[in-house]
């Protein structure tokens, strides 16, 4: 299963909007299988840094990835909202924890701009461009770059990711 790259066609795109830290983010609404509220994350000692723990979802135990940790922010203030996504490489489901889930918005591709050249390399790996908006712009996240298998390959070996520094 792969997500259509809607950046190239001119249609509108539905994005699930959420906040992590001070920024607004959006993720393709089609990639989000379900939004879970009130989930309890159980820490996993010795897990890779981007993994904040596991949570129970429909009788399965899902890996929970924290966007705050990926962004290099201090963990721990996440609300208990999570989006359930599918890791396209392994077929496993995983949960993305964010500070606050907002809504689903429709954006037009002509307001999309690539990542700013001055962006930190690490964030450049996670972000896939920005949708301009007055006031606060919306950062687009590529679900494939948030999935555990991709993070394991690209981030886990790197010394820079994860945790407050």
């Amino acid at each position: 299963m792969s997500y259509p790259d809607k950046l190239e066609d001119n249609s509108l795109l539905g994005l699930c909007r959420f906040r992590s830290g001070d920024d607004l983010f959006g993720i393709d609404a089609f990639a989000v299988l379900e939004v879970v509220d009130g989930c309890e994350v159980r820490k996993v000692p010795r897990a890779p840094k981007f993994v904040v723990g596991v949570l129970a979802y429909r009788g399965e135990v899902l890996l929970a990835v924290s966007l705050r940790v990926l962004l290099g922010l201090a963990p721990g203030v996440e609300a208990s909202s999570a989006m359930v996504l599918r890791d396209t490489q392994t077929g496993e489901l995983f949960a993305l924890l964010v500070d606050q889930l907002l809504d689903v918005v429709t954006v037009a591709d002509d307001v999309w701009e690539p990542n700013p050249a001055t962006l930190d390399d690490r964030l450049g790996l996670l972000f896939s461009g920005v949708y301009r908006a007055p006031g606060s712009s919306l950062v687009r996240l590529d679900p494939q770059h948030l999935q555990p298998s991709w993070l394991m390959q690209h981030l886990d070996s790197g010394p820079r990711i994860g945790g407050p520094r």
Binding site: V44, R46, V51, E60, V61, L63, T90, S149, L151, M152
Partner: peptide, 18 residues
């Protein structure tokens, strides 16, 4: 329950249970 491969490769856990 099986754990994601990111965790099962640690060699510490064989799975999880609810």
């Amino acid at each position: 329950k099986p754990l994601s491969s990111a965790l099962s490769s640690l060699g510490v856990y064989t799975g999880a249970t609810i």
